[in-house]
């Protein structure tokens, strides 16, 4: 009967609003050993980062979050991936990959401003995380000494992915539809 076929898992993402911010707070409090400032929660609601700050759902249950901010240095805009996490029972089901892929796609298609790359910090003890990001094209570009103030080890790798590898034009990704 119907029970023989298990329903397929559905992974979806949604934008953040003041109303689901409580869910983001709950996820952060469970996932990270850090309490984020009120400014952090204010910034992730900005319409500019709507595509880069998401909640991720498995079968309509919120199980993961990803939050980035846009940084501008010398006229070049980069995306900094501040938080990304999935609840423990829901890992290894491509939920993190899908939310990261959503951000990568959105960043490549972004035009105002054009985003050159995405970078992030990984604690040097967290090899699994490093491998995860490397599978999505990130490469180590340095180490931040004493990046963490209150957890050990205190150093962090800086990982980065260039979004427009063909050079300055970036046409292949950002070409307008014919």
């Amino acid at each position: 009967m119907a029970s023989k076929t298990r329903p397929a898992e559905r992974i979806t993402t949604s934008a953040l609003t003041t109303n689901n911010l409580g869910t983001v707070r709950k996820l952060n409090s469970v996932l990270f050993p850090i309490k984020y400032s009120e400014k952090f929660y204010k910034d992730i609601l900005s319409p500019d980062v709507e595509e880069f700050c998401r909640l991720t759902y498995l079968n309509d249950i919120p199980v993961g979050t990803i939050c980035c901010r846009v940084e501008e240095v010398d006229g070049v805009s980069k995306l900094y991936l501040a938080t990304m996490g999935v609840l423990a029972p829901y890992r290894s089901r491509s939920i993190g990959s899908k939310s990261l892929q959503h951000v990568l796609d959105a960043a490549r298609a972004h035009t105002k401003p054009r985003i050159s790359s995405i970078y992030l910090h990984v604690q040097v003890s967290n090899l699994a995380a490093r491998r995860f990001y490397e599978r999505h094209g990130f490469q180590e570009c340095g180490t931040a000494k004493d990046y963490y103030k209150k957890i050990e080890p205190r150093d962090a790798w800086v990982l980065e992915v260039k979004l427009h590898p063909t050079g300055e034009s970036g046409e292949s990704e950002a070409r307008p539809p014919a």
Binding site: R25, S29, I34, K35, S37, F40, Y148
Partner: peptide, 11 residues
Amino acid sequence: GNEDEKEVVNA
């Protein structure tokens, strides 16, 4: 206020 006990770090 279960988050109070955790340390505050600027992300």
